[in-house]
């Protein structure tokens, strides 16, 4: 009789574990409420921004001036769990991944004369770019992206909403 060793067992067990995990993962994704698309163009935002005339990058000074003049609405492009931990005061949550589902619900609450500023967090985060382009494509005018928005807003000690506030 041929002896099996842990090594020979591992050789078939590893691909089997991969296959079972993949089967459960993609099966569960299909039946759950919030299905995640298998592919998403995560890095397209920056190039879109460069080619879009309607989306501008706004500085934190300009954003703060508009905030205090009550001429702007902030939209948080980060996942909702990040938004719940803290966000720019009065900002709406519209995670980029869920933008198509939730955008109309949010847009109904925003006066058309307001300047829309999208933001996320991290100098390399371009979710705000992507969301700004998306809103522009929907027909919104006056849309800007505040790069690294959550961090710079906090650095300037500007008003925020947190679970404790």
């Amino acid at each position: 009789m041929r002896m099996t060793t842990p090594f020979t067992n591992a050789l078939w067990q590893i691909p089997a574990i991969f296959l079972i995990s993949a089967g459960i993962a993609f099966g569960f994704n299909q039946v759950r409420g919030k299905t995640l698309p298998l592919f998403c163009p995560w890095s397209q935002g920056v190039s879109h921004t460069a080619s879009s005339e309607n989306v501008s990058i706004i500085s934190v000074d300009e954003a703060a001036a508009l905030f205090y003049a009550d001429q702007t609405v902030f939209i948080d492009a980060r996942p909702e769990s990040f938004y719940n931990q803290g966000h720019i005061r009065g900002a709406f949550s519209l995670p980029f991944q869920e933008a198509e589902e939730k955008c109309f619900e949010i847009m109904e609450k925003i006066s058309p004369d307001k300047h829309i500023i999208t933001y996320c967090d991290g100098a390399t985060c371009d979710l705000c770019d992507k969301l700004a382009v998306f809103l522009c494509d929907l027909g919104c005018e006056n849309v800007s992206a505040l790069i690294n928005g959550w961090t710079v807003w906090n650095q300037y000690n500007l008003p925020v909403d947190t679970p404790n506030s």
Binding site: I17, F18, S21, A22, I24, A25, F26, F28, N29, L36, P37, L38, F39, C40, P41, W42, S43
Partner: peptide, 15 residues
């Protein structure tokens, strides 16, 4: 790369 981000996010936790 972009093409692997959502696939990884779906697959890795179940693995």
């Amino acid at each position: 790369p972009d093409q692997l981000i959502n696939l990884t996010a779906l697959f890795l936790p179940w693995l």
